[in-house]
């Protein structure tokens, strides 16, 4: 057995060496940092990391911090509406574009271009458009509609919807592109069969085609979910968490506590909560999406 292993390694030695950078990155930059982050969340670290052990004290503090609870609540609301609207809008766009429209590539280009831009840019643009002193409200007042109010970015009740609007503008093109690619991949004979069966077009999409596109739908939802959990830039650019703490999100909470509030223990506790949540939600998806059809290496 041992001799066999040596022979195998010898034969493929260069391949082992070539994968060394990847191994180093995975072990140190991903797993190592992750482990250390988790470890720090059980310490009393403030400005500098400490090696003591305070149990779950940081977690107790964390879930006693209104700002964190607000962040979590905001994330849930944003994620729900963002995913729902992106999915519905993106799917509708894809289906409508698929109806043999003229200037198809123009429409595709228009719907996807926001995705090519940075979140910072998306945040800034919509902040201006929704800014009462500059954007739509200002324009309406200029036109004589002095009672018109559109103050989402400065209204703590509506600010989340401003963020949702900006992120939907940024992300629904992705769903459109992926679903459209999927629609184009559907066997044309299926469509012919449905015409023989006399199934109305909307029903074909709903009952036959969309179920067939499950992998695309999952992929796009996964991509969007990741971007919404990581969401930081857009909030910083658009509202910087305000007004007050009305648009705080977890990613920003962590960054603030790491670099401004010097509360490393609390920040790592928060990031551990995010880590665990993401792993719990994503692990089955990743498994079914990427590992069932594993490479041929074996």
């Amino acid at each position: 057995m041992g001799a066999e292993l040596t022979r195998h390694v010898k034969r493929n030695l260069v391949a082992y060496i070539a994968l060394l950078p990847m191994a180093v990155v995975v072990i140190f930059a991903y797993l190592g940092t992750m482990a250390w982050s988790v470890r720090l969340s059980f310490s009393s670290s403030k400005l500098l990391p400490r090696n003591d052990f305070v149990g779950i004290a940081q977690y107790l503090t964390l879930f006693d911090t209104p700002r964190w609870l607000t962040s979590l609540g905001n994330l849930v609301i944003i994620a729900f509406f963002f995913l729902l609207i992106c999915f519905v809008l993106g799917t509708l766009l894809a289906i409508f574009i698929d109806q043999n429209v003229r200037a198809e590539s123009l429409f595709r280009t228009v719907f996807l271009y926001p995705y090519a831009m940075s979140f910072v840019v998306a945040g800034l643009i919509w902040q201006w458009i929704l800014n009462p002193d500059l954007g739509i409200q200002h324009t309406m007042h200029g036109l004589g509609f002095s009672g018109f109010v559109l103050d989402w970015v400065v209204n703590s009740k509506m600010v989340l919807y401003a963020i949702i609007l900006a992120t939907v503008w940024h992300g629904s093109g992705l769903v459109m592109a992926l679903i459209l690619a999927g629609l184009r991949g559907v066997d044309t004979e299926i469509w012919r069969a449905t015409r023989i069966d006399g199934i109305p077009t909307w029903r074909v999409y709903l009952s036959i085609v969309l179920p067939m596109l499950r992998p695309m739908i999952i992929t796009s939802l996964v991509l969007l979910s990741i971007s919404i959990v990581k969401m930081y830039d857009v909030v910083v650019a658009m509202t910087n968490g305000g007004p007050g703490t009305a648009s705080e999100v977890p990613a920003k909470f962590i960054m603030d506590n790491l670099f401004e509030r010097a509360n490393i223990g609390l920040a790592t506790a928060a990031s551990t909560v995010m880590l665990v949540t993401v792993l719990l939600v994503m692990a089955p998806v990743i498994y079914s999406q990427y590992f069932r059809k594993s490479g041929r290496a074996s």
Binding site: D187, E189, I190, R192, A193, R195, I196, G198, I208, M212
Partner: peptide, 21 residues
Amino acid sequence: TDPKDRGIGMVFQSYALYPTM
């Protein structure tokens, strides 16, 4: 006339079965 109103049944090369049903 619409295909469904012609009183025809059709069988395709790729079977064209609805895969999720």
